[in-house]
Nucleic acid binder design. Structure first.
Lengths: 202, 202
DNA sequence: AAAAAAAGAATGACTATTCATTCTTATTGC
DNA sequence: GCAATAAGAATGAATAGTCATTCTTTTTTT
């Protein structure tokens, strides 16, 4: 049976849809129970799909985890360049717009999963590789967009500042996840203060 | 059988020893596999103890997790006052000594477990309560020891600065755990820079 | 001998994964 | 246009093993 190109495209699209359906369900389960606490049968139930059918779209549970890690960061990866490539004059407004992107880290829905990914990266090399790749891109973009507006700073110190901003980002996620009383606005306020002081010349 | 007071004390001591034996083993297992990845039988094997015997010292697996969370932070809880109560003149040396305590967060052996605790706090209210209690004590001590050496700063901004330092601490743990190439020294250097800038008056 | 400590087998529920089976959809010969 | 046919999609029961927890038995201490 020779499939037409049209039918093939349709099938591919449906496969993509089903994969997303599984990932959406897995995201909910993993957020609530963690990677190892969540079971395939509960993921299947959340996806309105039979257990066995999931294995048509993912080789195993780890493949779901990896795919989810990649999807999870892809959103943030798009934000920073959007703020950076705006080629606005590097001034106060630019920094504020730049900082505003970091609410990504403080989203109470996303934060638990992000933290789970970080914890898993400590024991799963594949996850660590995904995290590392994103991290390198993140720093590279930050460096490019922030370099013009900081004065003549020695290279080492720039790395320290970038590292501090990365640390603050992860710290926000940790705080939002672990403290049920943490308010995103106050966390962001602290982040803003810290970033301003880190980027100040002198 | 009438136990002498001496025998009773001896028994209590041995019980404490066995509890630590379990916690040490659980710590190793949890670090390597996470709270939900580690099994009671592997914890028992790591503790050189039978599975059933663990239940003499802990009601269930969750009780081990809670006890470990408490024990894990107790070390850091003692460090900060030690640096603060030194009643040295509040100067550069004091801040450096104060900062030095934060290598606790960057210890590659401890960090994975700390991160696991934070992630677990997002879904387990009991764990969240332990984390919250430590966090409040942490801030209180920081506030007391740092207040004298910062100038006249409005109250809100002090909270923001403390929040930023907490975020940086958790961020260090996240970075050390998730990035196999992260160097503790460079992480601490970035932390030092950020703290100095956060504590600077003006 | 009495009591506590420790072991380890038993339990029953749950695990990730596989597999034979059925249901749906698409393509072919007529 | 319409059966016949083939393929893909989807199911849910079966597998082999592990899980946390409990229970009974044995060993050690007092």
């Amino acid at each position: 049976m020779v499939s037409t190109a049209e039918a093939l495209a349709r099938r591919r699209q449906r496969t993509e849809l089903r994969r997303d359906q599984v990932l959406d369900a897995a995201e909910r389960c993993f957020r609530a129970e963690g990677f190892h606490g969540a079971s395939m049968s509960r993921i299947a139930a959340a996806a309105d799909m039979s257990v066995g059918h999931i294995y048509r779209y993912f080789e195993n549970k780890e493949a779901i985890i990896i795919a989810l890690c990649e999807r999870s960061f892809s959103g943030f990866e798009l934000l920073i360049p959007a703020a950076a490539d705006d080629d606005a004059p590097p001034g106060a407004a630019f920094i504020e717009a730049w900082i505003a992107q970091f609410v990504w880290w403080v989203d109470p829905v996303r934060a638990p999963l992000t933290l789970e990914i970080m914890a898993e990266a400590g024991r799963n090399a594949k996850v660590a590789e995904v995290v590392g790749r994103i991290d390198r891109r993140f720093r590279e973009i930050m460096r490019r967009s922030l370099l013009p507006l900081s004065g003549p700073i020695p290279g080492d110190e720039i790395d320290d500042r970038l590292e501090a901003i990365v640390m603050l980002s992860h710290g926000m996620t940790s705080r939002i996840t672990a403290d049920p009383k943490a308010e995103p606005d106050r966390i962001i306020a602290a982040f803003r203060l810290a970033v301003h002081r880190l980027l100040a010349t002198g």
